[in-house]
Design a protein around this nucleic acid. Structure first.
Length: 589
DNA sequence: GCCGTTTTCGGCCCGACTGTTTTCAGTCG
């Protein structure tokens, strides 16, 4: 029985949270957080360090943490943590998730009103009891209620990334079932919506009953919500509902088309069928305007593509089926060849241990090179992001020197992979940048992002971003809206005005592929493209595994109608370097 | 709870913002 680095870090973070709620010395709680970070940042297996008695050599881990980590690694449990958890109502931790509520306020609510969870909190707010507490007031009470409301609205929604990973297992399982002929995801997941409600799956079979039986009985199913002759709904372990519909193989293409949607897209398709004296529904494309499933009247279509063809349309990739002009385009000719994630050669926005990333540049270079990528920019935070261990000019130069020495070593080995030096520089409140131009000029890649003062007016934030884009050393703007899906609303900004400024100044815009961001929003990319603004699909990676975000980012870029030529990090290294240099030359001229 | 050429006690990354206050505590990044 042993615990991994991640599990140990999670327990240490958990302890920190509980200590804060208890009202313990905040620095004690921070010591646990530091310990968690130290463990995560370890470059070798934790078990080995423990076995060799070297835990104490790690900065941030003293006597008390050594004992606790050793206990956790050797026994898989930690008595101290379990006792702490048992002494704290679990609802208090849930209350911390309400924006504006931190440990002190939650403790006050618990001590003075004896509230033990979000439900009791809501009742107390509605009864007006919270506003009367010292340190609270009418506004705080209203904000708590709003936060609780949002929490509820979000609770049945999930990030696309979570849906994709949950759906993968389900579809794989079904495809291996002997009675399943064809199987695919459908719905918002297949359309690559950034947030989904549930997972829709369509399968074809001659033995629907057996398929549904196997579906509801698969591992990972928490409970079966409904089960009939042709469809079943289950709740998966991670809280996501998954619906499976089983149809005959002849019905499969129309079922897939129908359940992929969107609803608006379907309405237009159905209208086109009617105009041609046909009828389209989930059972097929029929030679009759009357409601029917009669097989004899069904036009033989083997695939979605054939159905679209009968309706006079070229192929429409699922990501585009939002009734956003795709049908009119498919009428006149083939749709653009959208960017594929395999077109991407690297990521231009990533972090390392120089700020808040988890691996050192050298480790990152080795790992990304092995993935077959050509380059990877290390763009750590600037000093205004204290919480992320942001860099001042001196540390940034040291980081760049580190990166260059890694590149020199790779070159000696004949390894063509290359790290790029860079920074994710904070855009300060007035639109100036957190580092002087002279420092930015030394770097391969400069991303400018907003990390503080989210509550400015739309006009102020717009001016702020425009000013940043006008800086001659800024290559691209990072996560334009600052949104965190299902967590935090975007800040108010006139995105069209910012896009227009980027077009004028030759500044690129990032499509941040972090699952919680997927920012800039896909709805804005067609406009950016029309203005000639280029996109960089970036991982914003803080760990090795985040390289996988490229796939997600490419899907969102497809949803924004982007082609390979619209995305700068599809360029080979030499051409990318030329583009990076060209922009500066142009703007200095 | 951690740390140390300011060293075994007394600090602990910092600044903005909000809503509460009437000079500041709590939260956030």
């Amino acid at each position: 029985m042993s615990a991994s680095k991640e599990q140990v870090a999670e327990v240490l973070v958990g302890i920190a949270t509980l200590l804060e709620l208890k009202g313990e010395n905040p620095f004690k709680a921070r010591a646990y957080l530091n310990g968690a970070r130290a463990v995560e940042g370890l470059n070798e297996p934790l078990g080995k360090v423990v076995a060799e008695g070297r835990l104490g050599e790690i900065k941030g881990i003293g006597e008390a943490l050594q004992k606790k980590i050793a206990e956790l690694v050797t026994t898989g449990r930690l008595v101290y943590y379990e006792e702490l958890k048992a002494a704290t109502p679990p609802g208090l931790v849930a209350m911390l998730e309400v924006p504006g509520l931190g440990p002190k306020k939650v403790k006050a609510l618990h001590d003075q009103l004896h509230l033990e969870g979000p439900e009791e909190l809501e009742r107390a707010c509605k009864a007006g009891k919270v506003a009367g507490l010292p340190g609270f007031g009418e506004k705080t009470q209203a904000n708590i209620l709003e936060g609780l409301e949002r929490r509820r609205a979000y609770s049945s929604r999930h990030l696309l990334s979570e849906g994709l990973s949950a759906a993968e297992g389900v579809v794989e399982g079904l495809r291996q079932h002997p009675d399943v002929i064809r199987c695919s995801t459908a719905g918002s997941l297949r359309r690559f919506r950034e947030v989904i409600g549930d997972i829709d799956v369509v399968a074809s079979s001659k033995a629907a009953g057996r398929v549904l039986e196997s579906f509801t009985g698969q591992p990972g199913v928490l409970r079966t919500i409904a089960k009939g002759d042709t469809k079943a709904s289950v709740l998966l372990g991670d809280g996501i509902q998954c619906d499976l519909r089983v149809v005959s193989d002849a019905e499969y293409p129309s079922a897939l088309l129908y359940f992929t949607g969107s609803k608006e897209h379907n309405i237009v398709l159905r209208q086109r069928a009617i105009e041609r004296g046909l009828r389209l529904n989930e059972y097929g494309l029929f030679r009759s305007k009357e409601e029917t499933r009669e097989a004899g009247l069904r036009l033989p279509c083997r695939t979605e593509e054939e159905i679209l063809e009968r309706l006079g349309l070229h192929w429409i990739p699922p990501e585009l089926r939002e009734d956003a002009g795709e049908i009119a385009r498919a009428e006149t000719g083939p749709l653009p060849r959208l960017v594929e994630w395999t077109d991407l050669k690297g990521s231009l926005h990533n972090h390392s241990t120089w700020s808040d990333g988890h691996q050192r540049p050298e480790e990152i270079a080795r790992s990304m090179g092995e993935l077959g990528l050509a380059y990877w920019a290390i763009t750590d935070h600037s000093k205004a992001s204290f919480q992320a261990n942001g860099l001042d000019a001196a540390r940034l130069r040291a980081a760049s020197a580190d990166i260059r020495s890694v590149n020199a070593q790779l070159a000696r080995e004949g390894n063509p992979f290359r790290l790029l030096t860079g920074v994710e520089v904070d855009i300060l409140k007035d639109g100036t940048l957190d580092l002087p131009d002279a420092v930015l000029a030394e770097l391969d890649v400069v991303i400018a992002s907003v990390h503080q003062s989210f509550t400015q007016s739309e006009a102020e934030t717009t001016r702020r971003l425009i000013r940043a884009a006008q800086n001659p050393y800024v290559h691209l703007l990072g996560h334009l809206s600052g949104r965190l899906l299902l967590e935090r609303e975007p800040y108010k900004v006139d995105a069209h005005a910012v896009i227009e400024c980027c077009a004028e100044t030759g500044t690129w815009i990032e499509l941040n592929a972090h699952p919680s961001r997927l920012d800039m929003d896909w709805r804005l990319w067609p406009y950016a493209k029309s203005k000639g603004v280029k996109c960089a699909i970036n991982c914003d990676a803080h760990r090795f595994e985040h390289a996988g975000f490229l796939r997600l980012g490419a899907g969102i870029a497809r949803k924004g109608w982007l082609e390979k030529a619209d995305v700068v990090n599809t360029l080979p290294l030499e051409e990318l370097l030329k583009e990076l240099a060209r922009k500066r030359a142009k703007r200095r001229a």
